[in-house]
Design a binder for these strands. Sequence first.
DNA 1: CTGGCATGTGTAAGCGCTTACAGCAATGAG
DNA 2: CTCATTGCTGTAAGCGCTTACACATGCCAG
Lengths: 328, 328
Amino acid sequence: MDVTIYEVARRAGVSIATVSRTLRGTGPVASKTREKVLKAVAELDFTPSRLGVSLAEGRHAANGIVFPDLAGPYYAEVLLGYEEVASELGRSVVILSTKDRDNVRDLIRDLAGRVDGLLVFGQTAPDDLVAELVRMSVPLVFVARAPLPGADSLRTENIGPARLLAGHLREHGYRSYAFLGAPFADGDDISERWAGVREVLGEAVEPVLTARYTVESGYEAALRLLGSDSRPEAVICSDDEVALGAILAAEELGLAVPDQVAITGWDDIMAARHARPALTTIRQPMRELGAGAARALDELIAGQRDEPRHLTLPAELVIRHSCGRHPR
Amino acid sequence: MDVTIYEVARRAGVSIATVSRTLRGTGPVASKTREKVLKAVAELDFTPSRLGVSLAEGRHAANGIVFPDLAGPYYAEVLLGYEEVASELGRSVVILSTKDRDNVRDLIRDLAGRVDGLLVFGQTAPDDLVAELVRMSVPLVFVARAPLPGADSLRTENIGPARLLAGHLREHGYRSYAFLGAPFADGDDISERWAGVREVLGEAVEPVLTARYTVESGYEAALRLLGSDSRPEAVICSDDEVALGAILAAEELGLAVPDQVAITGWDDIMAARHARPALTTIRQPMRELGAGAARALDELIAGQRDEPRHLTLPAELVIRHSCGRHPR
DNA sequence: CTGGCATGTGTAAGCGCTTACAGCAATGAG
DNA sequence: CTCATTGCTGTAAGCGCTTACACATGCCAG
């Protein structure tokens, strides 16, 4: 990107203002002049520098997104929905993965300086940083996090589907349950799922901690859980990856799923469908989550709205085979 | 991001040059002055505008990446490796998905104007656009595409592993094979895989087209293929997603995998491990592909190298169960 | 005492654009 | 024939930074 508007102007024999007007379609330009300009533009392969444009316009025409990792399919799907809508709205997307980073706070700050607004996944940004961003009035949308004053939030229903899932398992007639998931932070998705499950199953369900939301982590925790004497009849996992790990563990222990132990997930990632037994899970509209965030951000940036809005999207119970042969 | 370097300077009672020097650590600053400046910075929550910095520095400190889609796990993994290294090198990552976009050319151009260099996945950018980018000397790295003059390329080995895979299947004693994949463009990964397979199996393998590299597409094509009289004993799929679709099709047709039909994939995505039977496939170092591209780009941008470099990373045969009970 | 040299600090010129404003022809009305 | 429009184009002032250069100081050697 070397050629500037000055060269185009010189070549076309006009001023840079005229070049700018021609290219942006603002202000009147005589058709003869326009032609000269366009010719010069074509000959030089001129593309206006985004930097110059942005600086002059006072906007970046870009959105940021902060996510912990892209390893699981969940974040990738949300990202995809986000990028698609952002792109339609003429904004680029700048990504930031916080995985294992120690200087997250600087990175997020830097990111905030490159974009007009930010999508932040729950629990990726420390609370005081969030407060700082709100104070600097950076348009913000949280995904998968409890509503926070000063910023939009967008999430998927947790409690309802959790009740539904728990109820479904109870119909299967199981007596003892485990809820397998990582430590829950207050107000995050996982803690809500736990609340919904607990509400229906009461004392029959025991929480069991995994270190992280990964296959490995689920595998290890499930190995311990299912290897013990007090093995539950059904394991409700915080998400699909943990559930896939649990299935692996059951397999290793020689336990048949679902006949000896039922296992459920959450998210309906790709592998859930292809696992055997296919995973009973809750489907989140992941792409729509991203798309909605991009739209919300656009409204915030355009200043069409300044009251924060908190939306919850519905989720759907997907019954496959890992929850057991259906009684009916 | 409202407060500018001028306000900081005013508050600290110094010039903007001093503020800049203090913050960047360039040039000498008396420690008393430094303190005043840092105090003002802290009080105002000042973060330098990236736009201003970039414009003055003449660099974006950002890399772009162009991929067709993020739906499959393959691109997500590469992206992750790319972002990680780019971030370590102090660069942000701007993404662009070309999926179903009609104005790809404008989008890529715009992207090129926001970044210092670009990672482009094979077959996402039209050839003449690529030529244009090369002409404008935009640092470029291609991934999963045949080497192109004027730009780096980075890919994973195809022919060798394809031979290995085909050889392994032949050891199983299969007589008839199908290679299930979308139409191959010259020099892309898929066509090389086909070449390697063909080389080993000769006339025993028949190419069969799928519409796209997706589960659905694989499913549909496999349904036709496996439903016909001349059903092959083994189906070598162009990638894991197609293979997963093929397994679904076999299941639907009541064909046991691998006993009645063997199926293999390529990539070793997450679902490959969890599918049942677990998918025999070729593992690509996807993350390393992204990381390597980021490093190559950095060299190119820094001008440490101007000769394009073409690297091929090794891939590994992962034998699971979908290829058949092993004879030994 | 001076001249020379660090050491600090400020001034101002960009970086590549957009756009308010001014200026200048050509045109039509009076 | 003059004057106010209208239509087009140019000038120049930003946008928020970095940095070459100039300009103080203060210090020490001569």
